[in-house]
Deep mutational scan, measured.
Amino acid sequence: TTTLTYTDEEEARKAAEELKRRGITFTYTKRGGTWEIRIK
């Protein structure tokens, strides 16, 4: 499992869109002031 952490929502959203485009499965979690993208 790879976890990407972002403090900028815009960056996190761009990363999530890129992963979706590649067909990669991930979970997206907001934790306080950070956003976590966990790639399975």
Score class of each variant (00 low, 15 high):
Thr1Met: 13
Thr1Ile: 14
Thr2Tyr: 12
Thr3Asp: 03
Thr3Gly: 03
Thr3Phe: 10
Leu4His: 07
Tyr6Met: 02
Tyr6Gln: 00
Thr7Glu: 09
Thr7Asp: 10
Thr7Leu: 10
Thr7Tyr: 13
Thr7His: 11
Asp8Gly: 04
Asp8Val: 11
Asp8Ala: 06
Asp8Tyr: 05
Asp8Arg: 08
Asp8Phe: 05
Glu9Cys: 04
Glu9Arg: 07
Glu9Tyr: 08
Glu10Leu: 12
Glu10His: 12
Glu10Val: 12
Glu10Phe: 11
Glu11Asp: 10
Glu11His: 07
Glu11Ser: 13
Glu11Val: 06
Ala12Asn: 00
Ala12Gly: 04
Arg13Ile: 14
Lys14Val: 08
Ala15Ile: 10
Ala15Asn: 03
Ala15Asp: 04
Glu17Lys: 10
Glu17His: 09
Glu18Asn: 08
Glu18Ala: 09
Glu18Gly: 06
Leu19Gln: 01
Leu19Glu: 00
Lys20Asn: 10
Lys20Trp: 11
Lys20Asp: 09
Lys20Ser: 13
Lys20Gln: 12
Arg22Cys: 06
Arg22Met: 13
Arg22Pro: 01
Arg22Tyr: 07
Arg22Glu: 07
Ile24Arg: 03
Ile24Met: 05
Ile24Glu: 04
Thr25Lys: 14
Thr25Leu: 13
Thr25Pro: 14
Phe26Tyr: 08
Phe26His: 03
Phe26Gln: 00
Phe26Asn: 01
Thr27Gln: 06
Thr27Met: 05
Thr27Phe: 06
Thr27Ser: 09
Thr29Glu: 13
Thr29Gly: 07
Lys30His: 13
Lys30Tyr: 14
Lys30Gln: 13
Lys30Pro: 07
Arg31Trp: 07
Arg31Ala: 10
Gly32Thr: 04
Gly32Phe: 07
Gly32Cys: 04
Gly33His: 13
Gly33Arg: 08
Gly33Ser: 13
Thr34Trp: 12
Thr34Gly: 08
Thr34Gln: 12
Thr34His: 13
Thr34Glu: 09
Thr34Cys: 04
Thr34Met: 14
Glu36Ile: 15
Glu36Phe: 11
Ile37Lys: 00
Ile37Arg: 00
Arg38Met: 14
Arg38Asp: 07
Arg38Thr: 15
Arg38His: 14
Arg38Pro: 00
Ile39Ser: 02
Ile39Arg: 02
Ile39Trp: 04
Ile39Leu: 07
Ile39Met: 05
Lys40Gly: 14
Lys40Asn: 14
